[in-house]
Amino acid sequence: MTTFHSSSELLEQIEALSGQDISDCYQCGCCTSGCPIGEAMDPPPSKAIRLLQLGRANELLDSEGIWMCASCLVCGTRCPRAVDYARIAEACRALVLRSRESKVDPDTVTAPELEEIPQQAFIAAFRKSSV
């Protein structure tokens, strides 16, 4: 588990890195209902934002959900309050990665995968999820 400073400090950092105002969200759930990965994302976008609103940023940073967002940007495109959750998830990932904790270890990629998967996937995955 990554240990960070107080939740209010964390929230400030997340807002600065993402350029989003967490209080803009009124919890309509449009983001979560449209998220193509929503079923596998815990917490899904609207719940993740709710955690931040409730001062529970540490829980979000320790969650699996922030690593499941592939930045497809459907949530932000459809948000009636113009909140871009993909940028919030990006900010959360950045804070974890900057504490030198990788989520994806390049050494776990197998030879057949390396042979087959387009390299844009590796570059993207490592840039998003590795130190």
């Binding site: 193509p36 499941m68 592939a70 996937a121 999820s129």
Partner: peptide, 20 residues
């Protein structure tokens, strides 16, 4: 037509990309 295929999640969550 504009739904996400799972993108680079295929690297570490092949199951999620496959389902999407």
């Amino acid at each position: 037509k504009a739904e996400c295929c799972g993108g680079y999640l295929v690297v570490n969550r092949r199951d999620v990309a496959k389902a999407a």
